[in-house]
Write a protein that binds this DNA or RNA. Structure first.
Lengths: 198, 198
DNA sequence: GCCACAAGTGGCAGAGACTGACACGTTAGG
DNA sequence: CCTAACGTGTCAGTCTCTGCCACTTGTGGC
């Protein structure tokens, strides 16, 4: 989330690098042995740091796979508020998610592996959905703003959570070994499933 | 889940009673002190059993609030397969969930308190979403059976997860202190948010 | 009524995730 | 060159959760 190198940010670079390295090693180990069969101690040993330091970078073991939830959520929200208010809400949401997918976050292969690991363990899936709840809290007010009529909050929540479910389904399908289609196509398709009439 | 008293089921009655008692005490303690500030040891002491026994009834601390996920999920699935195949899928899903809400599972007040506690702690929300994933695995094949056209699996998954989100939202809103409307009304409303055209 | 058998329970030991506190080395910045 | 901030490691401790074993208590057959 930090674009420019801040004046005193020399150490921040090393910090981000170590963080990324831990995540990479952890995902590899999880992919090979399974999430539950890998201890934090093993991850630390593979990276070359102490277990305590791993927990300094990632509050929970699951976070080594999930990454930083809040940052990307704010990204989506910013995209959404930038959409014209006349645009149908579903189109606006779809476009906002697409912008996120277009952002070249990490290595493509690494991203897929992370998503695959993520789908393989209940604890990780749950943690990922928790991230979605965080996003939902950011997006719901924006969506509610665009709605008309009664019960805006409840309806906005339903729309946001449904769209997040579509987003998650698309990414999960994309991570499958035999999936050849782009994540954007899968996203459109899952969105389309909810609007047979539109 | 067990209607008749099975021949050798004298012990099962006591078992269910103890289970319900632990859940009740745990929810009360969580509601008063917060989920993270209550240890399993404290719950055990309040009930009058050993911590080891608490873990025998509930694999995880969170399960004392969530309850048995699989049972109700199968219930919903059974309702869904019983719906006529001509019925629109959203109507069938709505009706199936309504049947679940109509089932007088526990005390009304106790149910509300459990839902309130459930919404207050991230760890519990996550576990609850894990339950939804379990339900989704049961419902998706049934929904896919009813769909036509391409990409049935993906579309079925989107529909099921979106409907589960509506279900969750409705129950969460229902648990709010100032909510006066029935859970069924809230469920219809959240469902309606996804089908402005129908 | 008696007795073997299953089932529930408690206590114990241990693994593993996570946290706070403290001391040490490194390094940015004056 | 000095110092103050920062990162790291080590240690001790809490809490959840799991096997294991011994003990007690109902259950059902004789």
């Amino acid at each position: 989330m930090s674009e420019v190198t801040k004046p005193g940010g020399m150490r921040a670079i090393a910090r981000d690098a170590v963080r990324a390295r831990i995540s990479e090693v952890a995902v590899d180990l999880f992919d090979e042995h399974g999430f539950d069969n890998v201890t934090v101690e093993q991850i630390a040993a593979a990276v070359g740091v102490s277990p305590r330091s791993v927990h300094r970078y990632f509050p929970a073991k699951e976070d080594t796979v999930i990454g930083d939830p809040a940052g990307w959520g704010e990204h989506v929200r910013d995209q959404l508020v930038a959409r014209p208010s006349e645009e149908p809400i579903w189109d606006a949401l779809l476009t906002s998610y697409e912008a996120l997918l277009a952002t070249p976050s990490r290595n493509e292969a690494q991203g897929r592996k992370a998503m695959r690991v993520l789908g393989s363990t209940p604890a990780l899936r749950a943690r990922n959905l928790e991230k979605h709840l965080l996003w939902a809290r950011l997006l719901t007010p924006v969506v509610a703003e665009r709605l008309e009529g009664d019960h805006r909050d409840l309806r906005a929540e339903a729309i946001v959570q449904a769209s997040l479910a579509c987003f998650d389904i698309a990414l999960t399908a994309w991570a499958e070994a035999d999936a050849v289609e782009s994540s954007a196509v899968l996203l459109r398709r899952s969105f389309g499933a909810l609007q047979p009439t539109a």
